[in-house]
Simulated assay, not measured.
Amino acid sequence: MTSKFTWTLSHLFATLLLIIGSGLLLWTLSTNFGTHLSVDATVTAGMLGLAGLVFLHPIPFNILAPAIGIISLTLGYATFYSTAHSWLSASIAVIVMVAILSYGFNLRRALRQRHNQWPA
């Protein structure tokens, strides 16, 4: 059972975080690709996106899936340029992040559904 999405102050804040994070990500990758500054900026952009997802509930799937992918790729990018350019460690970081985020948002949905069934 899905609930209808309505705009609230929380959703506006989440949208602002997602837009700022996406803008920071695009700016840093287009101007400073492969530098230490871009690593820091991509991690910051990923955390802004993650915070945006936390404030956005219920999360529409067409926003959740790409956001999880982008956040995971930012971690992979940071891992790749922070290590000795290891594709293996970057790939593992992306896979682990996708698993953690997918499980976390699925767990939150399950807890919210079960909360409705708790006795008063």
Rank of each mutant, 00 (worst) to 15 (best):
S102W: 12
Y77V: 06
H11A: 09
Y103P: 05
A51M: 13
L12G: 06
R109D: 10
A110W: 14
L50F: 13
A65T: 05
T2Y: 11
G104P: 13
F80N: 01
L64R: 14
S86V: 00
L16K: 05
T6G: 04
A45N: 03
P119A: 06
I20K: 04
L107A: 15
I100N: 05
L56D: 04
H115S: 03
N106R: 07
T15C: 10
H36C: 02
L25K: 01
V98E: 09
Y103N: 06
F80A: 01
R112F: 11
L50Y: 10
L48E: 02
Y81C: 10
Y81M: 06
L16M: 09
V98K: 13
T2I: 04
L18S: 06
L17E: 04
T28K: 07
V96H: 03
A120Q: 13
N116Y: 10
L24E: 01
W118V: 05
S91K: 03
T31E: 13
I20W: 03
L25Y: 09
G69C: 02
A120L: 13
L111Y: 12
A93M: 09
W7E: 07
A93T: 12
S82T: 11
F33C: 09
R109I: 04
L50V: 01
T31I: 09
S72M: 06
H36Y: 10
L64A: 12
I20P: 02
S82A: 13
L9K: 06
M47F: 14
D40Y: 14
G23I: 09
P119K: 05
L53W: 07
T35M: 05
L64F: 06
P119C: 00
N106F: 03
T35S: 15
S30M: 11
F61N: 04
S86F: 03
V43Y: 11
M1Q: 13
A93P: 09
H85N: 13
A14C: 11
Q113S: 12
